[in-house]
């Protein structure tokens, strides 16, 4: 019991600390990789909560996606190496207040709401995977297909917005 709480708190605090580092550091690549390790710590939290498939998926997906975020940050932000130690913030007091209010609200909801009895028995990792598979094909098939459509719209939207048709003939692939 206590080992799970300890590891959960440890990985959680690591995730929050990396989340804070994301906005404190001057170097953009450090900020992107801080978010990457924050997501990895969240993936580790999922493993501590015995959701193995979700944890491993989170650890894998976020590594590649956050690296792509890192290259886009390096492409679009001034002085990505953080040498000039620029300060890229504005309306600091307002956002700090909003952050603290959001934190307290979430804490309030989570502490004072009555969540009901805690479940102790958790299906094994293999069963979870099978249950998710059957859920995917059974009850949530519509959600699964609409997720596919969302991904399709995202691909079309991103390509339509960002990619220019090549002026000259496409060069040899």
């Amino acid at each position: 019991m206590t080992a799970q709480v300890f590891f959960l708190a440890a990985f959680g605090l690591a995730a929050v600390w990396f989340g804070i580092v994301v906005f404190r550091t001057h170097s953009m690549v450090r900020s992107a990789l801080a978010l990457l390790f924050s997501q990895t710590a969240i993936g580790a939290m999922f493993l501590v909560m015995q959701a193995e498939f979700l944890g491993v998926l989170q650890i894998m997906m976020m590594a590649t996606e956050m690296s792509i975020m890192a290259i886009f940050m390096v492409m679009f932000m001034m002085d990505p190496g953080g040498l000039g130690e620029m300060d890229m913030k504005h309306q600091r007091k307002l956002s700090l207040a909003a952050g603290v209010i959001a934190f307290l609200a979430a804490i309030g909801v989570s502490v004072f709401a009555d969540w009901g009895p805690a479940a102790t028995v958790v299906p094994s990792a293999d069963e979870q995977l099978r249950m998710l598979g059957i859920e995917l094909l059974g009850r949530s098939m519509l959600i699964f297909e609409s997720a596919g459509l969302t991904i399709l719209t995202a691909m079309i939207a991103a390509t339509a917005v960002a990619v220019q048709m090549p002026a000259k003939k496409e060069d040899a692939s």
Binding site: F53, I59, M60, L129
Partner: peptide
Amino acid sequence: ATGALFFNAALA
């Protein structure tokens, strides 16, 4: 139980 996935996650 998700060994094959873990291989890919580690190598990411």
